[in-house]
Design a protein around this nucleic acid. Structure first.
Lengths: 212, 212
DNA sequence: GCTTGAAATGAACGTGTGTTCATATAGCGT
DNA sequence: ACGCTATATGAACACACGTTCATTTCAAGC
């Protein structure tokens, strides 16, 4: 038997990637065998090599594809407004987008060490681009007096860690709706970096006195 | 050859665990072979089975030992004081303790899925105990009006995620000292949950009016 | 309807895996 | 001084891995 009805490259290819993504996320790249992936797709192991040169490249392609989607998704957001609004846009986007792609996110933070140095560098670059988007919001907010942040780089990483944590426990049918989770996280992120009112007044006051 | 000078169970046993911990953290449980561990210890693979019944148990023992140390360490901290102070104690302890044991922490959050259900349940229980310690601080702070938290459970997880993030980037010889990192994270955690001054005043005001 | 080639098979490959075990030896208790 | 046993060896086991490839089969183009 070969070439079953309705099974073309266009159909099997995505199926392979989907199965690999699911299995890598559940059991870890190293623990998943090509035969497992093939079985999930409904095909023999050999056939996978029509769609990927090897296992490592399969992982890399999944991760690169994911990071590209993240970057594209971020670029599609509306980042007008002041830093406070932009931070909310970012955090809400991050939560929403990452919850929709939990498997890919999980792998992205877990399996980087299973990549060759070359492939790792590519993804590292993309991740840095994403982080820089957040850091620039923090920097702007620091300059405008909206935020009170000691170290923008560290804060960026801390915020992203916090936001990523959501993927480890969120269940779509759980106690909290997506909207509510978005709101709570966004609120926490905002409070963690925002300048306190009294402190801002104090600064403005000092500036006023200096002028006078 | 066997029984080399100075190589007893008391020496080789810890060496095995140390090597396994290091390698699991670097390359992932599934990717590390018993022969690699043995080689690191300076012993043949077969000898490892004098110290562990199998590879899975070796991982489990490492993780259980780690979690026990975390719980013991937490219990040794001084948690007197108001919720704000207790939260700072907790965050500083967490950062410090986890940075000293980065390998174990990494594995704890990465390799849980490589455990049997039974072993997983044991660790899950210990982790929950740890999380509960933080949540009870948040609850107390909520009750006392120190904190402004929508959902203590979610906030607990968000804070721990944020704090754990430090292990992924911190380098002991890096730009920031441990003390400074502790301070920044502790500060961010505090701000993320603390009740704003104006809001507290407003509440007190409302309470005063209600009384009057 | 026949030809053609893309899509899939399934067996085979070499290698490496976790684990076992008969065997050897070094150091402690006596 | 010597035997006993804890500690280690190293070869072997059965199995599973990623990957290759000659072969087969089916859908589409003419």
């Amino acid at each position: 038997m070969a070439r079953k009805i309705g099974s073309h490259s266009d159909i099997t290819g995505p199926k392979v990637r989907a199965a690999a993504l699911r299995l890598f996320a559940r059991h870890g790249f190293a623990s998943v065998t090509m035969r497992q992936i093939a079985s999930e797709v409904g095909v023999q192991a050999g056939a996978l090599y029509l769609y990927t040169p090897d296992k490592q490249t399969l992982l890399f392609d999944l991760l690169r594809e994911h990071m590209q989607e993240v970057l594209d998704g971020l670029a599609a957001e509306d980042f007008s407004g002041n830093p406070v609004e932009r931070l909310e846009t970012f955090t809400r986007f991050h939560i929403r987008f990452h919850l929709e792609r939990r498997d890919a996110v999980f792998i992205s933070y877990m399996e980087l060490r299973n990549l060759t140095d070359e492939n790792f560098a590519v993804l590292e670059d993309m991740r840095r681009t994403y982080e820089d988007a957040l850091e620039s919001i923090l920097k702007d907010g620091q300059a405008s007096g909206h935020f009170d942040v000691e170290d923008t780089k560290l804060t960026t990483l801390a915020l992203i860690s916090m936001l990523n944590g959501v993927t480890t426990w969120y269940k779509p049918d759980g106690r909290l709706s997506l909207e509510r989770v978005e709101a709570i996280y966004s609120d926490m992120a905002g409070k963690a970096v925002r300048m306190a009112r009294w402190k801002r007044k104090q600064m403005l006051g000092a500036a006023g006195q200096a002028k006078a």
